[in-house]
């Protein structure tokens, strides 16, 4: 199967503090890959390095067959990688302007087409188009974040903790939204602590202490010890 993103031997960190110690990761085209791991495992660091927001200390990143190791973030986005941060939106901009920013480098005609497409996919957004993103509920905000990321017609959507700060009801909503995105033929890389996302994924990685501790298909991972540990950790956290 074709691989859309391949990262080899990723080492990275912040100002002299190494966080990632040689991570290898592959995302098969059209598949949903979940990156599990506890807080501080290096999930966000890995995503930010893949996006070019953090300098890569060593290793190599390839996207759709091209070496993007040295490419600036905006060029990676333009080549088809969309990123949805934990925040995901511009709170002080209205919803329509958020979508326009997601398609920042599209031609005007394409832009209008994509915006109507997003309103079609997410009818709730059309209703709220004049509202400020900051006034939306947590679930609506994630929906807008996904729509904003989809504006540029990416081939790969990378998401940092889409369930962060959401109640369980909204987490299910976000998973439904992701199903919509995935059905559009998009490849997904989702960093999460919430193992519910593994149910929706084709493949998963577990990151611990800046190294890949386990990997495998979703069903393999669910039965592995490493994930059971993380999984039960998660269950405990939900009870709090």
């Amino acid at each position: 199967m074709e691989v859309i993103l391949r990262a080899e031997g990723i080492k990275s960190g912040y100002e002299g503090v190494q966080i990632l110690w040689g991570v290898d990761l592959e995302i098969p085209d059209g598949q949903a890959v979940v990156l599990l791991g506890p807080n501080g495992a290096g999930k966000t660091t890995l995503l930010r390095t893949l996006l070019g927001l953090l300098p890569l200390w060593s290793g190599r990143i390839e996207f759709a067959g091209n070496d993007i190791t040295r490419l600036a973030t905006e060029k990676r986005v333009r080549s088809g990688i969309a990123f949805m941060s934990e925040l995901g939106v511009f709170p002080d901009l209205n919803l329509a302007d958020n979508l326009r920013m997601g398609g920042y480098f599209l031609r005007r005609s394409e832009m209008d087409q994509r915006i109507s497409k997003m309103y079609e996919l997410f009818p709730d957004l059309a209703r709220l188009r004049r509202n400020l993103a900051g006034s939306l509920s947590g679930g609506q905000r994630k929906m807008l974040g996904v729509a904003k990321a989809l504006m540029s017609e990416p081939r790969l959507l990378i998401m940092d903790e889409p369930s962060a700060g959401l109640s369980p009801k909204y987490v299910k909503e976000v998973i439904e939204i992701l199903k919509v995105a995935h059905a559009e033929g998009l490849s997904l890389l989702i960093a999460e602590q919430n193992v519910l996302f593994l149910e929706q994924a084709d493949y998963g990685y577990v990151l611990e202490g800046g190294r890949i501790a386990a990997k495998g298909s979703a069903s393999e991972l669910k039965s592995s010890d490493v994930v059971r540990r993380a999984y039960f950790g998660m269950v405990d956290e939900n009870k709090k």
Binding site: L53, V77, L87, F90, P91, D97, Y104
Partner: peptide
């Protein structure tokens, strides 16, 4: 305005 409201979000959105 996007940069004014969230600079880091503007970077990852692909804005120059």
């Amino acid at each position: 305005r996007a940069i004014m409201t969230e600079r880091s979000e503007a970077v990852v959105t692909g804005i120059s």
